[in-house]
């Protein structure tokens, strides 16, 4: 796979912070891959997402390079879509779902109002919202958390971007909805041949579908590589600790079994 973006010696610091949020990051993003950026609180994973998305707050200092293969950086909204943890925060509460999903298509694809609405309806069908024609006229607060996240995905993909950045996009959802949204994202990016950058604290969740993983800690990149290789033979002690602290239904319980 060719590198879509080469990140070299990247350093990011927020205004008023002498300690950088990210330091000395060297990472390639491959075209068409599903790359999971994994880390705990304070690891810098969301800062990396915001840097790639060009959504850093004013006054943030960025050093180093991000070389895009196309020569110029992708245009947010058109070439690059975003889905965040809290869909309520990324959707406008006073606009209908239809207006918000159609907006990207109208703005970036130059569609008329009417064709943009048709596109929005099509997008809602693709994210498998039940009764999409009705949801098109609904406001975000009338939907459940899982449906709002589906709408946010539809809006992010409406202009047909080649890159999708999902920052903890399933963390606020319950496990069942999380599993549904992950499989939806996986399917949508696969169908469209998109590049997915999936930021998460959950290494197990990423292990189910990412091609490559990059492990972050305290603002640094610990290691990166193919998912299978990193998970079966992690080189860094931190990756091993992260894997060891994973708990699923096959992990021995902390209590002895009930007598009953």
């Amino acid at each position: 796979m060719s590198a879509l973006c080469e990140i070299r010696e990247l350093e990011v610091a927020y205004r008023g912070n002498s300690v950088p949020a990210l330091t000395n990051i060297d990472l390639d993003i491959h075209a068409g891959e599903r790359l999971a950026i994994i880390g705990e609180s304070g690891s810098g994973k969301s800062t990396l997402a915001r840097t790639i998305a060009r959504l850093l707050p004013a006054g943030a200092r960025v050093r180093g390079e991000m070389r895009w293969s196309l020569g110029q950086a992708p245009l947010p909204g058109r070439d690059m879509g975003f889905v965040f943890q809290d869909p309520a925060a990324s959707l406008n509460p006073v606009l209908t779902v239809g207006e918000q999903v159609a907006e990207g298509a109208r703005l970036h694809l130059g569609l008329t109002r009417r064709t943009a609405y048709e596109r929005a309806l099509d997008m809602l069908e693709r994210v498998r919202i039940p009764d999409p024609a009705k949801v098109l006229k609904a406001f975000p607060h009338q939907l459940s958390g899982g449906q709002r996240q589906r709408v946010a995905i539809a809006a992010a993909l409406a202009a047909g971007p080649g890159i999708l950045i999902a920052d903890e996009a399933t963390s606020a959802l319950d496990m069942i909805v999380q599993a549904e949204i992950v499989s939806l994202l996986d399917e949508l990016v696969r169908e469209a041949g998109m590049t997915l950058i999936f930021i998460t604290h959950d290494i197990a969740l990423a292990s189910g579908f990412a091609d490559r993983v990059a492990i972050f800690r305290d603002g640094g990149l610990v290691e990166a590589g193919p998912t299978g290789a990193i998970l079966t033979s992690p080189k860094d002690v931190y990756t091993r600790a992260l894997l060891a602290s994973h708990r699923d239904l096959s992990t021995p319980p902390l209590i002895s079994e009930a007598a009953s």
């Binding site: 599903r34 197990a204 998970l231």
Partner: peptide, 25 residues
């Protein structure tokens, strides 16, 4: 966990992320 009787329990069990150490399916 081992012998769920309700569809709700089965769905919750299926939704728990498992560490996939092989290549992604």
């Amino acid at each position: 966990i081992e012998n769920p009787q309700s569809s709700a329990a089965r769905a919750l069990i299926a939704a728990v992320p498992r560490l996939v150490t092989g290549m992604p399916e």
